[in-house]
Lab assay of single mutants.
Amino acid sequence: PREAYIVTIEKGKPGQTVTWYQLRADHPKPDSLISEHPTAQEAMDAKKRYED
């Protein structure tokens, strides 16, 4: 089974940042970016789909 994890990042100019959620996995390479999402819920949904 595949495993993934969610990383929170800040995008934008200082003082005007927006939080994004990255879905990452250690396949095919360590810390590979799988997808980016504007909400934590979307990231969790993507994580479930990826791991299923």
Rank of each mutant, 00 (worst) to 15 (best):
G12L: 04
L23T: 02
H27M: 10
R24Q: 03
D31I: 03
H37R: 00
K13D: 13
R24F: 11
P1K: 15
S35T: 03
L33F: 11
G12S: 05
I9T: 07
Q41E: 14
P1F: 14
K47R: 07
T8M: 14
T17Y: 12
V7Q: 06
L33N: 02
W20Y: 09
T19S: 06
K11R: 13
D26P: 13
D45C: 10
K13P: 15
S32K: 11
P14S: 08
W20S: 04
V7P: 00
E51L: 10
A40G: 06
D31V: 05
I9M: 07
K29F: 14
T19D: 03
E42H: 05
P30V: 11
K29R: 12
K48A: 12
R24K: 14
A43F: 00
Q16G: 10
L33C: 07
E10Y: 10
D45W: 12
A4D: 00
R2E: 06
P28V: 07
D52C: 11
A43I: 02
I6K: 00
K48M: 12
D31A: 13
K13N: 12
T8K: 15
V18F: 07
K47E: 02
P30K: 13
E3K: 15
T39D: 06
T19K: 11
R2H: 12
E42P: 01
A46T: 02
K29N: 12
L33T: 05
W20A: 04
Q41H: 09
R49I: 12
P1E: 10
E36S: 05
R24H: 05
H27P: 03
T39I: 03
T8E: 14
Q16N: 13
P28Q: 07
L33E: 03
L23Q: 00
Q22V: 04
A46Q: 03
Y21S: 00
I6E: 00
A46F: 04
S32R: 15
S35H: 01
K29L: 14
K13I: 14
I34P: 00
D45H: 10
P1V: 14
S35F: 01
K47N: 02
Y5R: 13
L33D: 01
L23C: 02
V7D: 02
H37L: 02
W20C: 06
E3A: 15
S32D: 04
Y50M: 05
P1S: 12
V7E: 03
R2C: 12
K29E: 14
A43V: 05
I6L: 05
K47F: 05
P14N: 12
P38H: 09
V7C: 11
S32N: 08
L23R: 00
M44L: 14
E51W: 06
A4P: 09
R49A: 15
A40C: 15
K47C: 05
A43M: 01
V7G: 03
K47P: 00
G12T: 06
D31H: 13
Y21R: 00
K11T: 06
K48Q: 12
T19Q: 07
R24C: 08
Q22R: 01
A4F: 14
A4I: 10
A40M: 15
G15T: 05
E10R: 09
R2A: 09
Y21T: 00
I34C: 03
A25Y: 05
V18D: 10
H27V: 13
D52W: 12
Q41I: 11
D45R: 11
L33Q: 03
Y21C: 01
H27S: 11
K29A: 12
A40V: 15
V7A: 06
P1L: 14
P1G: 14
E51A: 07
H37C: 02
Y21N: 00
Y50S: 02
K47Y: 05
I6G: 00
A43Q: 01
L23H: 00
G15A: 05
R24Y: 13
E10I: 13
L33I: 13
I6R: 00
L33V: 13
E36G: 02
Q16M: 14
P14T: 09
G15K: 05
I6W: 02
E51F: 06
R49W: 11
M44H: 10
P38Y: 08
P1C: 13
A4E: 01
T39H: 04
K13F: 12
T17A: 09
P30R: 11
Q16P: 09
E42L: 09
P28M: 07
I9L: 07
D31K: 10
H37Q: 01
A43G: 02
E3C: 13
Q22K: 00
K13L: 14
D26F: 08
W20P: 00
S32G: 06
R2V: 11
T39W: 03
K29D: 10
G15Y: 06
I6D: 00
Q41M: 10
M44K: 09
M44T: 08
L33S: 02
A25Q: 05
L33Y: 05
D52I: 12
G12D: 04
T8C: 11
T17Q: 11
A4S: 09
A46W: 03
A25S: 15
R49G: 06
P28I: 08
P38G: 08
E3P: 09
P14Y: 11
D52M: 15
L23Y: 01
A43Y: 00
H27D: 09
H37E: 01
D26I: 08
P28W: 06
M44D: 07
E10Q: 14
A43S: 02
R49H: 10
R2S: 08
A43D: 00
P30I: 10
Y50K: 02
D52A: 15
M44W: 14
K29H: 14
T39V: 03
A4Y: 14
P28H: 11
A4V: 12
A46P: 00
E10V: 13
A40T: 06
Y50H: 06
Q41C: 08
